[in-house]
Computed example of a mutant assay.
Amino acid sequence: MVQAAERRTGRNETEDERADRMWVELIQEIRVAQMGVQILFGFLLTVVFTPKYADLGDTEKTIYIVTVVLGATATGALIGPVSLHRLVSGRRIKPRAVQWAARLTFVGLVLLLATTAASLLLILRVATHDPYVPWLVSAVVAWYLVCWFLLPLWIRRRYTTR
Protein backbone atom coordinates (compact mmCIF):
# COMPACT_ATOMS: atom_id res chain seq x y z
CA MET A 1 0.00 0.00 0.00
CA VAL A 2 2.87 2.37 0.72
CA GLN A 3 4.31 1.76 -2.74
CA ALA A 4 1.04 2.80 -4.36
CA ALA A 5 1.11 6.11 -2.48
CA GLU A 6 4.70 6.74 -3.53
CA ARG A 7 3.90 6.15 -7.20
CA ARG A 8 0.92 8.48 -7.14
CA THR A 9 1.33 11.62 -9.20
CA GLY A 10 -0.52 14.90 -9.10
CA ARG A 11 -1.53 17.17 -6.29
CA ASN A 12 -3.94 16.61 -3.46
CA GLU A 13 -5.92 19.83 -3.89
CA THR A 14 -9.54 20.83 -4.18
CA GLU A 15 -10.91 22.35 -7.37
CA ASP A 16 -10.77 25.79 -5.74
CA GLU A 17 -7.18 25.29 -4.55
CA ARG A 18 -6.21 24.17 -8.02
CA ALA A 19 -7.91 27.20 -9.55
CA ASP A 20 -6.07 29.49 -7.12
CA ARG A 21 -2.72 27.91 -8.02
CA MET A 22 -3.43 27.97 -11.73
CA TRP A 23 -4.54 31.60 -11.53
CA VAL A 24 -1.26 32.65 -9.90
CA GLU A 25 0.73 30.74 -12.53
CA LEU A 26 -1.33 32.22 -15.36
CA ILE A 27 -0.89 35.78 -14.09
CA GLN A 28 2.89 35.28 -13.97
CA GLU A 29 2.83 34.06 -17.59
CA ILE A 30 0.63 36.95 -18.68
CA ARG A 31 3.02 39.48 -17.10
CA VAL A 32 5.79 38.34 -19.42
CA ALA A 33 3.61 38.43 -22.54
CA GLN A 34 1.97 41.74 -21.58
CA MET A 35 5.32 43.44 -21.22
CA GLY A 36 6.37 42.33 -24.69
CA VAL A 37 3.13 43.26 -26.41
CA GLN A 38 2.88 46.63 -24.67
CA ILE A 39 6.43 47.65 -25.60
CA LEU A 40 5.94 46.51 -29.20
CA PHE A 41 2.54 48.21 -29.45
CA GLY A 42 3.95 51.42 -27.96
CA PHE A 43 6.68 51.54 -30.59
CA LEU A 44 4.16 50.83 -33.33
CA LEU A 45 2.00 53.74 -32.23
CA THR A 46 4.90 56.16 -32.66
CA VAL A 47 5.78 55.15 -36.23
CA VAL A 48 2.97 57.12 -37.83
CA PHE A 49 4.36 60.33 -36.26
CA THR A 50 7.84 59.96 -37.74
CA PRO A 51 8.95 61.70 -40.96
CA LYS A 52 9.79 58.31 -42.51
CA TYR A 53 6.10 57.28 -42.41
CA ALA A 54 5.22 59.69 -45.23
CA ASP A 55 7.81 57.99 -47.45
CA LEU A 56 6.34 54.52 -47.01
CA GLY A 57 4.68 52.92 -50.00
CA ASP A 58 1.08 51.74 -50.00
CA THR A 59 2.09 48.16 -49.23
CA GLU A 60 4.19 49.21 -46.23
CA LYS A 61 1.39 51.46 -44.94
CA THR A 62 -1.06 48.56 -45.24
CA ILE A 63 1.34 46.27 -43.38
CA TYR A 64 1.71 48.99 -40.73
CA ILE A 65 -2.06 49.36 -40.26
CA VAL A 66 -2.53 45.58 -40.03
CA THR A 67 0.33 45.39 -37.54
CA VAL A 68 -1.13 48.12 -35.32
CA VAL A 69 -4.53 46.42 -35.33
CA LEU A 70 -2.91 43.08 -34.49
CA GLY A 71 -0.98 44.76 -31.66
CA ALA A 72 -4.16 46.32 -30.31
CA THR A 73 -6.01 43.00 -30.37
CA ALA A 74 -3.07 41.19 -28.76
CA THR A 75 -2.97 43.81 -26.02
CA GLY A 76 -6.70 43.39 -25.45
CA ALA A 77 -6.49 39.62 -25.25
CA LEU A 78 -3.54 39.67 -22.85
CA ILE A 79 -5.08 42.29 -20.57
CA GLY A 80 -8.52 40.64 -20.79
CA PRO A 81 -7.82 38.09 -18.04
CA VAL A 82 -7.23 40.89 -15.55
CA SER A 83 -10.60 42.44 -16.33
CA LEU A 84 -12.23 39.01 -16.31
CA HIS A 85 -10.84 38.29 -12.85
CA ARG A 86 -11.93 41.66 -11.53
CA LEU A 87 -15.49 41.34 -12.86
CA VAL A 88 -16.08 37.76 -11.65
CA SER A 89 -14.11 37.94 -8.40
CA GLY A 90 -16.14 36.73 -5.45
CA ARG A 91 -18.73 34.96 -7.61
CA ARG A 92 -17.40 31.49 -6.78
CA ILE A 93 -16.61 30.67 -10.40
CA LYS A 94 -12.84 30.85 -10.30
CA PRO A 95 -12.26 27.47 -12.01
CA ARG A 96 -14.31 28.67 -15.01
CA ALA A 97 -12.64 32.09 -14.91
CA VAL A 98 -9.22 30.45 -15.02
CA GLN A 99 -10.27 28.41 -18.08
CA TRP A 100 -11.48 31.50 -19.92
CA ALA A 101 -8.44 33.53 -18.89
CA ALA A 102 -6.19 30.76 -20.20
CA ARG A 103 -8.06 30.80 -23.52
CA LEU A 104 -7.71 34.57 -23.78
CA THR A 105 -4.01 34.25 -23.03
CA PHE A 106 -3.56 31.65 -25.75
CA VAL A 107 -5.36 33.90 -28.26
CA GLY A 108 -3.18 36.78 -27.07
CA LEU A 109 -0.03 34.76 -27.71
CA VAL A 110 -1.17 33.89 -31.23
CA LEU A 111 -1.94 37.56 -31.88
CA LEU A 112 1.42 38.57 -30.39
CA LEU A 113 3.11 36.15 -32.78
CA ALA A 114 1.22 37.70 -35.70
CA THR A 115 2.07 41.23 -34.49
CA THR A 116 5.74 40.37 -34.15
CA ALA A 117 5.84 38.76 -37.59
CA ALA A 118 4.10 41.71 -39.23
CA SER A 119 6.41 44.15 -37.42
CA LEU A 120 9.45 42.24 -38.61
CA LEU A 121 8.07 42.16 -42.15
CA LEU A 122 7.51 45.92 -42.11
CA ILE A 123 10.93 46.71 -40.65
CA LEU A 124 12.80 44.45 -43.06
CA ARG A 125 10.85 45.75 -46.07
CA VAL A 126 11.74 49.32 -45.12
CA ALA A 127 15.36 48.46 -44.28
CA THR A 128 15.95 46.43 -47.43
CA HIS A 129 13.95 45.59 -50.49
CA ASP A 130 15.69 42.25 -50.96
CA PRO A 131 13.55 39.32 -52.08
CA TYR A 132 14.73 37.20 -49.12
CA VAL A 133 12.66 39.23 -46.61
CA PRO A 134 9.56 36.96 -46.71
CA TRP A 135 11.81 33.92 -46.28
CA LEU A 136 13.57 35.46 -43.30
CA VAL A 137 10.25 36.42 -41.69
CA SER A 138 8.92 32.91 -42.35
CA ALA A 139 11.98 31.41 -40.66
CA VAL A 140 11.46 33.60 -37.59
CA VAL A 141 7.76 32.68 -37.45
CA ALA A 142 8.71 29.01 -37.71
CA TRP A 143 11.14 29.48 -34.81
CA TYR A 144 8.44 31.15 -32.70
CA LEU A 145 6.03 28.32 -33.51
CA VAL A 146 8.61 25.78 -32.38
CA CYS A 147 9.46 27.66 -29.16
CA TRP A 148 5.97 28.80 -28.20
CA PHE A 149 3.78 25.91 -29.33
CA LEU A 150 5.39 22.82 -30.86
CA LEU A 151 8.00 22.19 -28.17
CA PRO A 152 5.54 22.66 -25.29
CA LEU A 153 2.99 20.43 -27.02
CA TRP A 154 5.64 17.78 -27.69
CA ILE A 155 6.77 17.90 -24.04
CA ARG A 156 3.16 17.69 -22.87
CA ARG A 157 2.50 14.67 -25.05
CA ARG A 158 5.79 12.95 -24.24
CA TYR A 159 5.77 13.39 -20.48
CA THR A 160 2.11 13.49 -19.52
CA THR A 161 1.07 10.36 -17.68
CA ARG A 162 -2.04 8.76 -19.01
Rank of each mutant, 00 (worst) to 15 (best):
A97T: 04
W135L: 14
A97K: 02
M35R: 11
V146L: 12
W148V: 06
V107G: 02
L112W: 03
Y53C: 00
N12Y: 14
R7E: 12
A72D: 03
T59D: 12
M1C: 10
I30N: 01
K61L: 02
P51Y: 08
T62D: 07
A74T: 02
R91S: 09
Q99I: 13
V82H: 03
F49A: 11
L84Y: 00
L136Q: 13
T9C: 08
L151C: 07
R156Q: 13
R96Y: 12
W23D: 03
A5E: 11
V140R: 07
D55R: 03
R158K: 12
R158W: 07
G90E: 00
Q28H: 15
T62W: 07
R156G: 10
W135F: 10
D55L: 03
W135Q: 13
T67R: 00
L111A: 02
I79S: 01
L26H: 06
L151R: 14
V68T: 05
L26V: 03
R158D: 06
T115L: 04
L153P: 08
K94R: 11
P95Y: 01
V66E: 09
L26T: 01
A118H: 01
P134W: 07
T161M: 08
Y132V: 14
L45W: 11
V110H: 05
S89D: 07
V110D: 04
V48C: 06
R158F: 05
L40F: 04
D58P: 09
T73L: 15
M35H: 13
Q3A: 10
L150T: 08
Q28N: 13
R31H: 10
L153H: 11
L109Q: 13
L112I: 02
Y159G: 06
G57D: 13
H129R: 11
E6D: 15
G36S: 05
E60D: 08
A114Q: 00
D58F: 10
L151D: 14
Y159F: 13
Y144R: 06
L136S: 12
T128M: 02
L40Q: 04
A114T: 02
H129M: 12
T128Q: 09
G71W: 03
T161W: 14
G108Y: 00
A118K: 04
L136W: 12
G57Q: 01
R157Y: 14
P131K: 15
P131I: 14
E60P: 00
T62Q: 08
A118M: 03
K61A: 04
V107A: 09
V133F: 03
A33E: 00
Q99K: 14
G80N: 03
V133P: 04
T73F: 15
R18I: 11
I39F: 08
L70K: 02
Y64G: 06
W143Q: 11
Y159H: 09
A77W: 02
A4K: 06
G36K: 04
G36L: 03
S119Q: 04
L78W: 00
L112N: 01
F49P: 09
W143E: 12
W135K: 13
L111E: 02
G76W: 02
R156A: 09
R86N: 00
E17F: 06
W154T: 06
V141N: 08
M22W: 07
P134S: 04
F49R: 07
Y159R: 13
A101P: 00
